[in-house]
Design a binder for these strands. Structure first.
Lengths: 256, 256
DNA sequence: CGTTTACTTGACGTTAATCAAGGGGAGTGG
DNA sequence: CCACTCCCCTTGATTAACGTCAAGTAAACG
């Protein structure tokens, strides 16, 4: 936690532009000067350390946040003091979209490790999107995408068993890292087993047992938080229904 | 299915305006002429009958849809031919927001009963929102709200047991009806037990047993699809953790 | 070096799914 | 209008998956 947190103003600026680009501008038609205008409203990052809270549930909503480096989780209070982990956020991913509606944050966000964040004041972004139609379109897409991701998660929690959930989590994580240019088969989990279980609706013990089982089955190599995917194909097969040597029959479940 | 489906062009038009208002314009600062312009792009409804498909997963995305009367469900294919019911839609509620991102529908929608729908061509809506800042803001809020609802559902599927899920479903349904001016304590469920179970991640049999139990406990009166909430307070208590005469200890679950 | 926290593993219990069977409406055809 | 059928719903018995409880090990931290 030395080099990575000590970053020059200039490098932050460049990185912010990168973040903004990746989340808002990826497949679109902004002119260079549009990007410049967008970049101008992005505030410089404030570095967070493990456990630091970026925003808390109930706080007034002012800005969206983009992860520059590191990772964060968002979570909401459940019944009886419990928490539900809602999502993990990797570099280039945006946070705070759920707060627009009520004007206050619906969940809290905290850093899983040392992280740098870009802040985008929403009021200014909104003004800008009104002026730049393609940026407005990107915002709609961004919000819509978030809905799609939540939908995937609903499907996971509603229909998948423990094994399928963890396999889906690992593959999804792998793919997100790969999208950012990192290794898809060799990575570090910045969250605890507890947080993974919470996110997937499973007990810590179940997550732990599954990691062991996956390793025994030659699907992954697990060493504490270091993960090596040995057989992504095999994980894929687990997700889509029948697990390797076991249940195979088509589930009846559902329909009218 | 006579009077309700035979609707004059004028009444549709008025109803569309109502729909548009309720979903897009509720707490906002549109001038009457803005509303007029918005209303002008809304296409007249096409009536659907039970089982009719409004849009199908994979279809090109062109329009958002607002329920005028009746009710619909959206669902996505799960693994092995199964389906996951993603949401139920009541009058005034909007569908299709998840399709903006990819430009094609991510889920399918079908009518649970005879229903009338308003269609809002998205391209035209987008043009309009670029011209009317307060409308743009409403769109952001609408999308954000959808995310918030999905989040609530994640919490339900991730942390709640069968009893809590059904109680939450009943109360949520009741509140949504109440918002539309209907009775909050006496209503008709347009979906089957199967669809409720699918939506809540439960087996049909479990849903059925819970309805029976809730009735035995004096919480509701159930007669086929007719529901009478006798003790909303009691349902509320079930949702927030401890069920009436049983488990009361604080769940340990979660946290880092 | 001692303490704490995270993770793992085993034994057991509980919840809800699955399997199986029977009742009751709603719609259909006679 | 009645009888039949189909589907939806309900109820009971059994089972499997996963949570819970308990204990022990290994890193991380001060």
């Amino acid at each position: 936690m030395n080099q990575s947190t000590v970053i020059s103003i200039e490098s932050i600026r460049v990185a912010c532009r990168y973040c903004t680009l990746s989340s808002l501008c990826l497949p679109m038609g902004l002119t260079p000067e549009d990007v410049e205008r967008l970049d101008d409203i992005v505030k410089r990052a404030r570095p967070l350390h493990r456990g630091d809270v970026l925003f808390r549930e109930g706080e007034r909503f002012r800005s969206l946040y983009v992860v520059k480096t590191g990772s964060l989780k968002t979570f909401a209070p459940s019944c009886e003091g419990g928490e539900q982990v809602l999502s993990f956020h990797l570099p280039g991913e945006i946070m705070g979209l759920d707060a627009i509606d009520k004007g206050e944050h619906a969940c809290s966000a905290s850093a899983l490790e040392t992280s740098a964040i870009c802040e985008i004041p929403f009021a200014r972004l909104e003004e800008l999107t009104a002026l730049i139609p393609s940026l407005q379109h990107q915002m709609y897409r961004l919000l819509s995408k978030e809905i799609g991701q939540d939908t995937d998660m609903l499907l996971l929690l509603g229909k998948k068993n423990a094994e399928e959930r963890l396999a889906a989590f690992l593959l999804s994580f792998s793919q997100r890292l790969h999208k950012r240019g990192l290794s898809a088969t060799d990575f570090h989990l910045s969250m605890s087993r507890h947080e993974i279980g919470n996110y997937l609706g499973l007990a810590v013990e179940t997550v732990s047992r599954l990691f062991t089982r996956f390793q025994d089955d030659g699907l992954v190599r697990v060493e504490r938080k270091h993960i090596e995917l040995l057989d992504p194909q095999g994980l894929e097969e687990i997700i889509d229904g029948a697990s390797p040597g076991r249940r195979q029959a088509p589930q009846r479940q559902q329909q009218t």
